[in-house]
Simulated scan of single mutants.
Amino acid sequence: MWKTGQPSRQPTPARNVSRPSNSFTGALTPISLTSVDQSGHEMGVIAAQLLLERIRGRSEVRNEVFTPRLVV
């Protein structure tokens, strides 16, 4: 914003740099980034179990909730 012909001297807000998953490739970057561990392996295991249960005849709905973990 311009006031009296001069640019505003508002401080720039801090930026948070993060990546969406805690994969091994993120550790290869030259800078440290915050990431979110989304339990990918555990999620895959549960998904396979649920699929096998469906194939074997389970008809009721089953929900699984995974809590993400912030990795700094």
Rank of each mutant, 00 (worst) to 15 (best):
M1E: 01
M1G: 02
M1F: 01
W2V: 13
W2S: 04
W2T: 08
W2I: 14
K3A: 02
K3R: 03
K3Q: 03
T4A: 14
T4S: 15
G5Q: 05
P7A: 02
S8C: 02
T12R: 03
T12Y: 01
T12I: 04
P13I: 02
P13A: 09
A14P: 03
A14V: 01
A14C: 01
R15G: 00
R15Y: 01
V17M: 08
V17A: 09
S18L: 06
S18W: 06
S18V: 01
R19K: 07
P20M: 14
P20V: 14
P20L: 15
P20I: 14
P20Q: 12
N22D: 15
F24I: 03
T25C: 03
T25Y: 12
T25S: 11
G26K: 03
G26H: 07
G26D: 11
A27D: 08
A27H: 03
L28C: 04
L28P: 00
T29C: 10
T29K: 13
T29M: 15
P30A: 14
P30W: 11
I31Y: 14
I31D: 11
S32F: 09
S32M: 10
L33V: 14
L33A: 09
T34G: 03
S35M: 10
D37A: 13
D37Q: 08
Q38P: 00
Q38M: 11
S39M: 11
G40K: 02
H41G: 01
H41R: 05
E42Q: 14
E42T: 10
E42K: 12
M43Y: 04
G44L: 08
G44T: 08
A47Q: 08
A48E: 06
Q49S: 11
L51Y: 10
L51T: 09
L51R: 05
L52V: 11
E53N: 12
E53I: 06
E53H: 07
E53S: 13
I55V: 15
R56I: 03
G57A: 05
S59F: 01
E60G: 00
R62W: 04
R62H: 11
N63L: 11
N63W: 06
N63S: 13
V65L: 11
T67Q: 12
T67L: 11
P68S: 09
P68Q: 09
R69T: 15
L70A: 06
V71A: 08
V71S: 07
V72E: 14
V72G: 05
